[in-house]
Simulated scan of single mutants.
Amino acid sequence: MISSAWRDEGLDEWQAALEQSDGRPWIAMLAGAGAILLIAIVAINLSPVDISAHGAGALAAATILAALVWGGAWFLTLRHATTGWKIGVAAVLWGVALLIIAGAIAYANIALRIDAANVRRIRIDETGEPRLPPGMRAGPITRTMFDFLRDMTSERHQREAMFRVMGMDRLHDAYMVSNTPAMLKDCARFVRVEPKIDQSDRRVTAAIARVHTRLGVIVADEATRRELIKAFDKGLNINLSNMRRSSELQRRQLEIGGRLCTFLATHRWQAMGSQFMFYNQGDIGTFNRTITDWNDATREQTALVADARRKMTETGLLDGR
Results as ranks from 00 to 15, higher is better:
M1K: 12
A5I: 11
W6K: 13
G10W: 06
W14H: 11
A16G: 01
A17F: 13
Q20K: 14
D22S: 11
W26M: 12
I27A: 14
L37V: 03
L37M: 10
V42T: 10
D50I: 09
I64G: 04
V69I: 13
A73D: 04
A73P: 01
V89P: 02
V89W: 02
V92H: 02
W94I: 04
L99Q: 01
G103R: 04
A104S: 11
N109P: 02
A111P: 12
L112C: 10
R113N: 09
N118R: 13
R120L: 05
R120H: 07
R123D: 09
D125P: 04
E126P: 03
E129G: 08
P130S: 05
R131H: 08
P133E: 11
M136C: 06
A138Q: 10
P140H: 11
T142C: 11
R143C: 10
F146D: 04
L149R: 06
D151P: 07
D151V: 10
R159Y: 06
F163I: 01
V165M: 06
H172N: 09
D173Y: 00
P181M: 08
M183K: 03
A188V: 08
R192Y: 05
R192D: 06
I197N: 00
I197L: 06
Q199F: 09
R202T: 05
V204Y: 11
T205H: 10
I208N: 08
R210K: 14
L215H: 04
G216W: 06
V217H: 12
A220W: 11
R225M: 12
L228D: 02
K230Q: 14
K234W: 07
S246C: 05
S246H: 04
L249V: 10
Q250N: 12
E255M: 09
I256N: 00
G258K: 03
R259G: 11
F263E: 01
S274F: 12
Q275E: 15
M277E: 13
M277T: 15
F278R: 03
I284F: 14
T286L: 13
T286A: 15
N288R: 15
T292D: 13
W294Q: 02
D296W: 02
D296A: 14
A297E: 01
A297Q: 01
E300V: 04
V305I: 07
M312R: 14
M312T: 08
G316H: 04
L318Y: 15
L318E: 09
G320C: 13
